[in-house]
Each structure stands twice: as structure tokens, then as C-alpha cells.
Design a protein around this nucleic acid. Structure first.
Lengths: 380, 380
DNA sequence: TGGAAAATAGAAATCGTTTTAAAAGAAGGG
DNA sequence: CCCTTCTTTTAAAACGATTTCTATTTTCCA
């Protein structure tokens, strides 16, 4: 044990419970540093200029790769000095003067959705390839946090914003329009705001799900979503509305008991109620990741066999859908593509300085066939 | 359908496949904006000063809440003008002058681990409560990306860095020490670098796992990890080494066939090989999220019954462990606490300007009992 | 060799703040 | 009524770059 506890000068083992550790657990011991006090002088462009024997304007030209303004010799000298000194220009000063930060802010409504993370990864990778850094903020479904993040990001002069909005705060976004800050919405819309948006074709997703169920002989189909609330979040609203419409189009009876919107914590109860009906549904569409998770957990606990007793189709990109036994059939979103496109659009907005026509891009879901749908026709 | 396609001026349905959409799918139509060209003049502190009839120094004092330098009347006047104009100070200029950005960079080795996200959420929330913004970067297990992220973040003058390192690039971090930029490691260590680090007590985790299995009568216990590689990543290395040690301490025979490190894609094969042994293990410890995911998927496909045929214990915080049927017993990390502490430590480094003594904090894992371990004693 | 054009270097203004030191005004005491 | 002593207010110098415009040097050609 001794070895493990000495990886560094001190290694306090929080699991050992020894009394000697307790006191200092979370109180890092500091020691005054002499060097720190005598203010570290930072390297500036002047230092480089002096050492290279040129003016700082020349160095600046070099930094911005305008080599036509200097002789080959100067160029090399500057390069060498920068190398030696390990000089790195101060991004703040640069951005201040250039009025460009090469920063794009991403505000995620809820980072717990797998979709968010997948989109963000795509956004980051696309932007990075263009030399832009991404500042990710999580609003945690709180409109106030969303607003405050926008304020902070603007104060930092970000070049653009990609937003998974939490609510319908049109006023904020109107202001962004006024000051010509490019922004796009992704996954969800904000009512009354004219800008570019990228979303799943939610109705198509529901339709594909229902079709799949019908093809397997189901007709008693239900849907579970999170609560709609006063300002319904786009995907929930569209998926629910889509469900009603699609069922009607398919000529299937829509039983209101089969349509349920409830908070995550209440979904288990709702499921129990559904299954206790004289005529329970034979299949349920889980309108998103979170609903699917609750649904699976609840059916484990309640001993509901999937798909023998209940067929399930999920919408979204939950990782666990593929891992669950049986694998859950889902309608997944082209998250990578959506993120990449969002990034491209925002870059167009930043670089072209032209006002884009508001467009809502709709992305097609794709069916990931699992084994969570029972084929009623063959009585499997 | 018509309604849905007109949420905004244009709504192109990417799922409908109509030929008319195809062309413009990803080519946002731009229109020249007249206003954009006549350069938006940004509101500055001068505008406020002029309108309030005071000097800009006074306004600046106001902005920094040093009200003792002005009369109550001026104070109110400035407040009002700022309100009217909706003036927001330029963060770049501020940071440049103050030599403080109120930005902390977080570099995540791999954002696909649930642990990463949970830590990041905790970090973000702790920092935000102190008025600090978090800039999250994903290194994607690529040391070059890690390095480049550090460079960019430093160029932006972040106040501190929280790093889930990808490899053992000591040199970079030495430089951080030299220039007195506070940073901490989390989840993994970098060999040869003296700083504060926060990690799971990996050995304790393995020990708890093995104990749990022994308590249920298992003795043929295996472990699966991702590849160790040339520069072994801390948790893998420690968990594997810990396993060997703990088995020995427990007086159990350690069969080398039961110890396997392989890439995610090869784990299914490895599992098949293990189960095909004349004496297959009765239990396996999955050393992290990814291994557990592959293990579960593979056993689904290979028809291996958990826990009847094989007991499983996972280390880490995979969401799907609780959702899987049966729920998987895991050793989970106190991610929230780790993140919060990392944030606190980095803030201490930033504010106290004192050099911390290098400490490696070890966090205790906790056992989440599921139903993935068969009790061999009762022949369950 | 003179002079114009091209190449190179440098001075100074600027970006939008903060901060310091000093000026101006008000109040109080003798 | 002048001199202190506070209280308010302001001017000016940073912060670390970029950029424009001018000055200097080279080069080249007649």
C-alpha cells in the first residue's frame, strides 16, 4: 500500500479513512512562492522586436504572414527569435484590435442528451478545422442560464453563436439580429425568431416509427413524452403532434389513454397504469432518450418483457439502446451531420457578413433496427 | 404537410427527397445586407461617459463598483445611462488591462466517457458560481490535440487549466509551472509532473470489486481493459496492477488467460475466447465504461447469459449499467465531488497566487449493487 | 551618376478598457 | 477669508497587439 500512496510528495488516500488524512483532505497546503511575487514579466511583441533588431510593426507583419513587407533575412531572423523566446502573441490584444475572436459559443440546452454531445463534437471538429475555437456552455434547461450565457459570450465578443434553446425567449435573439451577430438554432426552434435552424424532421421520425410498428401488426400504439409545459419544446411538441396526425392518417384508433406526457420520475407509474388497462397498448414509442431510459428501467423492475409483452421504439440517440438486451429499435438523428452543418452555416455568417435568409433545415431520421418490436403477425 | 414546411420563410424538408429541395439543401441563400456594410459602431465606455456628462474614468469606476469615488447623483446618472443604452463593457479590453480573463480551460481526454461529462458539469457549476466561465476542449485521446489546445488556451490568457491528460507529455506542463499558470490533473496523471491531481483510488475500486465477487463465491475471476500501450493511461494501469495485487492478497490463483487488454473492437473476440476456455472465468471485471459496453453487447450477441453464465462488475459511471437488464453492479466514481474539488483547487491557485504543494488526491469508489453477480454459494 | 520605383523599416494611432496621479470643488477651522 | 482636508472628478498612461502612413534604403535603368 505504501507505494501507491507516494506517487507524489503527498498522496492522501481518501478511501483509507485514516484520521491523519481527514483534516487536510480538501485543504491543499500552499507555500508562498518567492518568484511569484516578483511579477512575472510577460513576453511581448516588443521583446521580439528588440531582440531581432527590427520594429514591432515588422514583427506584427510577420505574425500575420504578410512576408512581402520584409526581406528574407529579416523574416528568418524574426522566426528564429520567436522560436528561441517561445513567444506567443497575446490573443486578447489581437482580438481587441482585429475585432475578431475566432471563438464561437455553443449553448446547449441540456448536455445530458446524447444528441447534444454528438452534435457538439461535430461542431467542434468542423470549427477547429477552420481555426475557430468553441466555447461550450450548458444551460441545464434553465432559460435564465441561457440568457446569462448569451450575455457573457457577447461580452467576450464571440464571433457567432450556436444555440440549443431552452425556451422561447424571442427578445434576446431579436437583439442579436439588430447587432448583426450570426447565430443558428439546432435541435429546437424559438418561436417568432427569424434565423437559420437545424432540426430533425420529427414528424417523419414518428411516422417511421409508427409504420414500423404497423408493419409488425401493431395497432394499439402508445407514446410517452416528457411534459410539454407552457412553452412546449419543439421536438416534444412536434413528435406528439406528429403522432396524432400519423395515427389518424394510418386509420388507427387513437386512444387518449395511450398518450402520456409526464416528468421522468413519474414515467414508471405511468407505464404501470398503461399496462394495467383492460386493453393495454402492445407497443410504445419513447419520444426521447430520457423517456426510453425510464421506460426500460421501469419495465425491468415491473417485470414487463420486451418485446414479448411490450414492443418499444425510441427516438434519439441513446447509447444504451444498442447495448440493452434486446437492442432497442430507434430512430436516430444524423447528429454529426447536423453539427457539421450548423458549424458551416455559422462560419458563412461570420465570414460573408451577409444576412442569411431564415431557413429551417429538416434532417431525416434513420431507422436502427433492433429486436424490441414483436412481430404480431407471425405471433413470434 | 404544408403547414409543417412553413415554419419560417422557407422550410426545406430533407426527408421528403423532393428534387426541388436537393440543390439548396446545404447552400443557405444569402442576401446582401445594406446595413451590415455601413459598419456597426459599437457602444463604448466613451459613449456612456459623454451621455452621462462625466469622464470615462468615472464610468470605469462605476463598472468596477468602486462607488466611493463618486457622488450618489453621478452614480445614479451613470446607472441610468447604461440601462438606456444597454451598454455592456467589452470583455476583451477588460481582460487585457486587468490581466485576468475569468476563464478556465478544461481539456478532456475523451468526452465519450460518462465520467468526463459528469466531472465537467460539476466543474462548470462550481466555477460559474464564482463568476468564472469554462472553456471545454476535447482532445479525443490525441496528445497533439491536447498540446494544441493548451497553446490556444494560453494564448487566450486563461486563468487556469483543468486537464484530463491523454499521455505523458511532461514538458508542456513543466512550462506551465515556469510561467506560473495554475493547473490540475483529473482522472489521470502525467508522470514526472509535480502538480495537484485528483483521481479515483483505482486499487480500492478493483479490490471492492474482487471482494464482492469473492463474497459471492467466485474464484475464477478475469479482467478486461483497453490496451495499455507504451505510455499506459493511469486508470487502466492502476486497475490492472491493482487486480493482480488484490488477487494475490486474496490468495486466489491468477490465471493469465483471464487477464486481457484489447482494443474495443476486439473485445468481443476476446470474450468468446475466454468463454471457450476449458475452465472459463465465472466473473469478469470490466475496467471501464467502454469495456463494459462492448462486453454487454458481445454477450447479447453470443448468447452469454448474465449473470447465469458470467458475472460482471464494471468500473466507472456508464449510464447504461443501471438500465441494462439485469442492472450491472458497478464501482462508481464520485464524479461530482471530483469535479467540484478540481474547480476549488484551481480557484485557490488563481486567487491565492501561491504555489501549491503537489498532492495526489484519491477518491473512494462506491459500490452500486446490481443483479449482474451470481451467488455461487447458494447456487442461485 | 542621378533619379524614380520598389523594398524595407519605423512612428504613431488605434482597439476599449483600467488605474494612477493629479486637479478641482466643497467643507471646515482658525 | 485663507489654508487644510476631504470628496469628486478628470487626464493620461498603460495593456499588447494591428494597421496605416511616412521615411528611409536599395535597386534599377537611362
Amino acid at each position: 500500500m505504501a507505494v501507491r500512496r507516494k506517487i507524489d510528495d503527498y498522496t492522501l488516500c481518501l478511501s483509507c479513512g485514516r484520521s491523519e488524512c481527514t483534516e487536510r483532505r480538501f485543504h491543499p497546503i500552499m507555500e508562498k512562492s518567492k518568484e511569484r511575487s516578483l511579477k512575472m514579466k510577460k513576453l511581448t511583441i516588443d521583446d521580439v522586436a528588440r531582440k531581432a533588431g527590427v520594429s514591432k510593426s515588422t514583427v506584427s507583419q510577420y505574425l500575420n504572414q504578410r512576408y512581402q513587407y520584409m526581406s528574407e533575412a529579416t523574416r528568418q531572423r524574426i522566426a528564429q527569435v520567436i522560436e528561441e523566446l517561445e513567444y506567443r502573441p497575446n490573443g486578447l490584444a489581437r482580438s481587441l484590435k482585429q475585432n475578431r475572436t475566432y471563438l464561437v459559443g455553443v449553448i446547449v440546452a441540456n448536455i445530458d442528451y446524447n444528441l447534444s454531445i454528438r452534435c457538439v463534437k461535430a461542431i467542434e471538429s468542423e470549427l477547429q478545422s477552420r481555426g475557430i475555437q468553441t466555447l461550450i456552455c450548458n444551460a441545464d434547461e434553465d432559460p435564465d442560464k441561457e440568457r446569462s450565457h448569451i450575455e457573457t459570450l457577447l461580452a467576450r465578443q464571440v464571433d457567432g453563436l450556436i444555440v440549443f434553446p431552452t425556451a422561447h425567449q424571442a427578445a434576446i435573439y431579436e437583439k442579436l439580429n439588430e447587432q448583426h451577430t450570426p447565430y443558428v438554432f439546432i435541435d429546437r426552434l424559438v418561436e417568432g425568431v427569424r434565423t437559420q435552424s437545424l432540426l430533425l424532421d420529427n414528424e417523419a421520425a414518428v411516422k417511421m416509427g409508427v409504420s414500423e410498428l404497423i408493419a409488425s401488426g401493431h395497432s394499439r400504439i402508445g407514446i410517452m413524452t416528457l411534459p410539454l409545459g407552457v412553452q412546449p419544446i419543439t421536438p416534444r411538441k412536434e413528435r406528439l403532434a406528429g403522432f396524432r396526425k400519423v395515427m389518424e392518417e394510418a386509420g388507427l384508433p387513437l386512444c387518449e389513454d395511450y398518450v402520456c406526457s409526464a416528468a421522468a420520475a413519474d414515467l414508471a407509474d405511468e407505464l404501470a397504469k398503461l399496462m394495467a388497462l383492460p386493453e393495454p397498448p402492445t407497443a410504445i414509442i419513447a419520444a426521447n432518450d430520457i423517456v426510453l431510459a425510464e421506460l426500460l428501467k421501469a419495465s425491468n423492475r415491473q417485470g414487463i418483457q420486451i418485446p414479448q409483452q411490450l414492443s418499444v421504439i425510441g427516438i434519439d440517440d441513446a447509447e444504451f439502446a444498442q447495448i440493452y438486451n434486446p437492442a432497442v429499435t430507434t430512430l436516430s438523428q444524423p447528429a454529426r451531420e447536423m453539427g457539421t452543418q450548423a458549424a458551416k452555416i455559422i462560419m458563412a455568417g461570420i465570414e460573408d457578413k451577409e444576412k442569411p435568409v431564415p431557413i429551417t433545415y429538416r434532417f431525416a431520421p434513420s431507422l436502427q433496427v433492433g429486436a424490441s418490436v414483436k412481430d404480431l403477425r407471425r405471433g413470434e
